[in-house]
Deep mutational scan, measured.
Amino acid sequence: MAAAAAAGAGPEMVRGQVFDVGPRYTNLSYIGEGAYGMVCSAYDNVNKVRVAIKKISPFEHQTYCQRTLREIKILLRFRHENIIGINDIIRAPTIEQMKDVYIVQDLMETDLYKLLKTQHLSNDHICYFLYQILRGLKYIHSANVLHRDLKPSNLLLNTTCDLKICDFGLARVADPDHDHTGFLTEYVATRWYRAPEIMLNSKGYTKSIDIWSVGCILAEMLSNRPIFPGKHYLDQLNHILGILGSPSQEDLNCIINLKARNYLLSLPHKNKVPWNRLFPNADSKALDLLDKMLTFNPHKRIEVEQALAHPYLEQYYDPSDEPIAEAPFKFDMELDDLPKEKLKELIFEETARFQPGYRS
């Protein structure tokens, strides 16, 4: 834990890192770190609560700039109880001085990944967590956004079992017609939660990839272990087919990539493993919904509104309290091709509203 900075004593240090967030945020305490930044909790002297502050230093890398800009653009436009918001952003007053960006968010005690390492969940908890994931996802999908990296560590939890989806750095506007060349190379989302079509096709992607990830998360809540822990690309596919069985001819016809289709045709026939054999203690309604989410063919996979209306979630289902976005989200430009200098300018502009004396 960093010592509390005395008023006016300059930035606090946390594990050798400068955290320049005073005077409003003090009493910093280390939480963890990701690929390009550290997260601390801090005391907000204005709202009198502890908050989470993520320090991001992305400006050396085009990919990190892209992810940072995506996350900020999306989260500043989203407003939903099951999606983490941005409360404040701290950065230098000029673009030349801006080396880091500090993002202030609600402090959540833990995440689903940490929880599943230590606790076996009751059916009631599984049901409530799944409902909140789908409630947040309904809003995301209504904005025409794909999260693309749903996994237990991106689901934040607090002691009252509130759940918030975080990390929109890989999110995209849904565009089933656009052929994202190089899709697989830039697709760094965790393999275990990846839909089979991501490994088999490169053309376009749809909201059904997020539903697949939610199915993987439900299976993990039922058993405290990942359902498809593939060691590499082909191993991942083999794990999936080992449980779902061989795809039907109709399902194979959806695979545009001939090499991928021929690979699947070359494999020995596998039978589907019954879900109640894998999860003998699970609620039968939970397994019915799991089956509809972990469907090989993305066109037959359940959609988020149908999933919310499934009998497993009937005690929570309330369409009048499951809000959607006001308007579909649009990125003005494809960020993939922009140089990091341009992305830095866009991050600077996007964060201006939090600067003292800002006038829109």
Rank of each mutant, 00 (worst) to 15 (best):
D162F: 05
V14S: 03
N87D: 00
Y233D: 12
N123F: 09
Y113T: 04
A171F: 03
A143I: 02
L338G: 08
L308Q: 13
I243T: 06
D332K: 05
V304Q: 06
F348L: 15
N276R: 02
N87R: 10
I347Y: 15
A35P: 06
L244G: 06
D124K: 02
L287F: 07
L76C: 07
I90P: 11
F228T: 01
I126D: 02
L137H: 07
K164Y: 08
Y317N: 14
K285W: 07
H178L: 15
P280G: 05
Q105V: 15
I243A: 02
L130G: 09
K48C: 14
P319K: 08
I31Q: 15
G242C: 15
N154G: 02
D149M: 02
Q249C: 04
L107H: 02
N47I: 14
D321N: 11
P11V: 07
D318A: 13
F296R: 01
R277I: 15
A5D: 12
Y64G: 15
N47D: 14
Q66M: 12
R148H: 07
A143C: 09
E341G: 06
N45A: 12
V304S: 09
L112H: 01
Q62A: 11
H125Q: 14
A309Q: 08
H141N: 15
A219D: 04
A3F: 07
L258R: 07
G85V: 14
K231F: 08
L264R: 02
D291Y: 13
A35G: 15
N238C: 10
I165C: 02
L163E: 02
G85R: 11
E250L: 04
I255M: 07
C65K: 02
P58R: 15
I90R: 03
V101W: 08
E12D: 15
R172T: 00
I90K: 12
L156M: 13
T159Y: 09
C216R: 04
A325W: 04
Y193T: 01
A174K: 10
Q66C: 12
K292S: 08
R359D: 07
S122L: 07
L115A: 05
S142T: 13
M38F: 12
T190Y: 11
L346E: 13
D337Q: 06
K272F: 14
G8D: 03
L244C: 04
D106S: 00
L115G: 04
A52H: 04
E345I: 03
N297I: 15
C161K: 01
Y187G: 02
R77F: 11
D177M: 11
M38N: 14
Q66T: 10
N271L: 06
H299D: 09
Y193M: 04
K55R: 14
F19S: 14
F78C: 12
K292D: 02
Y193C: 04
L130M: 14
L69P: 01
W212C: 14
D251L: 06
W192E: 08
D235A: 10
S142D: 01
K340Y: 06
F279I: 15
L264T: 11
G242I: 08
L346V: 11
H80V: 08
I140D: 02
Q97H: 15
D283I: 08
K340W: 02
R277H: 06
F19Y: 15
H232A: 06
D88P: 04
T63L: 13
F228S: 02
D321E: 13
R148T: 07
V104R: 01
M221W: 03
D332T: 05
E349T: 02
G357I: 10
S202D: 11
L112M: 15
V39F: 13
Y25M: 01
F78K: 04
R194H: 09
E60I: 02
W212A: 10
A286E: 03
Q355K: 15
K342N: 15
A260P: 04
G169H: 02
D44L: 12
Y139P: 12
L134K: 06
W212H: 06
L107V: 09
G230I: 01
K99E: 03
A7V: 05
A42R: 02
P298C: 01
V18W: 01
T295D: 05
L146N: 09
F129Q: 06
V273C: 04
D44G: 10
M38P: 15
L69T: 03
L241V: 10
W275Q: 03
F228Y: 15
E81C: 10
A35E: 04
A143G: 09
H180I: 12
K270I: 10
R70I: 01
E96T: 00
G242F: 07
E322V: 13
N154F: 04
